[in-house]
Computed example of a mutant assay.
Amino acid sequence: MGRLIQTLQPEGLGVSMRLENAPRLAEALQAAMPGWPLDRWPASAAPYRALAAWWEEGCYYQAVPAREGPRRLPGIATATCSLIADLIPEALKALPSMTGLHCAAVEVQGRLVLFPATHRAGKSLLSAAFAAAGYRVFADDVLMLTADGQGMALGLAPRLRLPLPPSLPSGLARFIVDHDDVSDRRYHYLALDDGRLAGHGVTRPIGAIVMLDRLPGTPAASLTRLSPGDGLLRLLGQSLAGEEHDPSRLLERLLPMMHNLPCGLLRYDDPMAAVERVVAGLDEAPVAAPHPQPAPAPRGSQSPAESPDTAWRRLPFSAEYALGEECFLVDVGGGVHRLSAVAGGIWRLLGIEPLTSAEVAALLAERFPDVERSRLGRDVASLFEDLAVAGLVAPADP
């Protein structure tokens, strides 16, 4: 019996997918990538290196570089997912001017609402709910960020983990069943038309960032406003740019779109109620939220910061950026640090001359007369300790 070899070439990539004796997998890939054009090449004429997968004895397998044996993929949706996941790094290589963001994204009123990744928070299920409500999905897992700060779709269908939650609203459950495209026991790809799924290369400006907190049993969806700094930190943490990306350059790219960008925390259980809350929340006036205090740094038996008479000086750093009242620092090692409005003010004072915690506490006492001096002293000492641990300050020379 002869071998059936098919080669699929995703548009814009320097890698193809070579499938052996797997015609159903070729159909599944085209169904799961409806917005990403795939060319077919004869096996002998394929011009690019290939990701190889095949069907053998009732199971799919995929060759993995630097791995002794192939990856076993028991279902067709699982095999589809594995191959698509290996295409994402190739897309990042092919689009060096862009940044990959690990997030879901949907279009609302001509702008994108981004849902940065949180483990098992329901990004894909929420994307399905937006699609069921008539909105267009740009991503359920990876969105490309262009050099001018717009989000670009890859054209991949949302992929849901199975089994679906038993508490799923009946209308959404029917929508998912009626839009079954490729599925097995682990995954279910949604079949969406052009009105509900953006095609490869379609771009829209970013309109809001919403962090997800899915809590089973939550009686009603709520949307709490956060500062733009919360959204910036989450996007920095979900960047897929790779090990060689420069945090300073990434901050420069993200900062222009973060100014005045609504950010929120969505607590929900019912995905359809969450859709309604997000859409309604985009029209509401922003409400300032307090900046959460960082956890205290580990302390030894004695620290220079505990002495109110120790003068502190700034150490060399790579970059400093302002976002609203907050400040973001990039240290010489590439780490990113977020300072509140007060901490940023202290940082700027240290740029003028070294100061002791007692001197800083005295200045703060004039600004906050209702706060106990002892508390101000402790807070300033804790800040200096945290900055010292981060390698941003050190005791000044005597």
Score class of each variant (00 low, 15 high):
2 G>V: 07
5 I>V: 14
8 L>A: 04
12 G>Y: 02
35 G>W: 10
40 R>H: 14
43 A>Y: 04
43 A>I: 04
60 Y>K: 10
70 P>K: 05
72 R>W: 00
72 R>L: 01
78 T>P: 10
90 E>D: 11
97 S>A: 11
113 V>Q: 02
119 H>N: 05
125 L>E: 00
136 R>G: 06
139 A>Y: 02
147 A>Q: 14
149 G>K: 09
154 L>V: 01
162 L>P: 07
166 P>V: 12
191 A>Y: 09
202 V>P: 01
211 M>D: 04
216 P>F: 03
229 G>A: 09
233 L>F: 15
234 R>I: 03
237 G>Q: 08
239 S>N: 13
242 G>T: 02
251 L>I: 11
258 M>A: 15
259 H>V: 11
260 N>A: 13
262 P>M: 10
263 C>F: 01
284 E>P: 08
288 A>N: 05
295 A>D: 13
314 R>S: 14
321 Y>M: 09
326 E>T: 10
327 C>P: 01
328 F>P: 02
330 V>S: 01
332 V>S: 15
333 G>T: 05
333 G>L: 05
338 R>S: 08
339 L>G: 01
340 S>V: 01
349 L>I: 13
350 L>S: 08
358 A>Q: 15
362 A>R: 14
365 A>W: 00
379 D>N: 13
385 E>Q: 13
390 A>L: 11
391 G>R: 15
397 D>P: 12
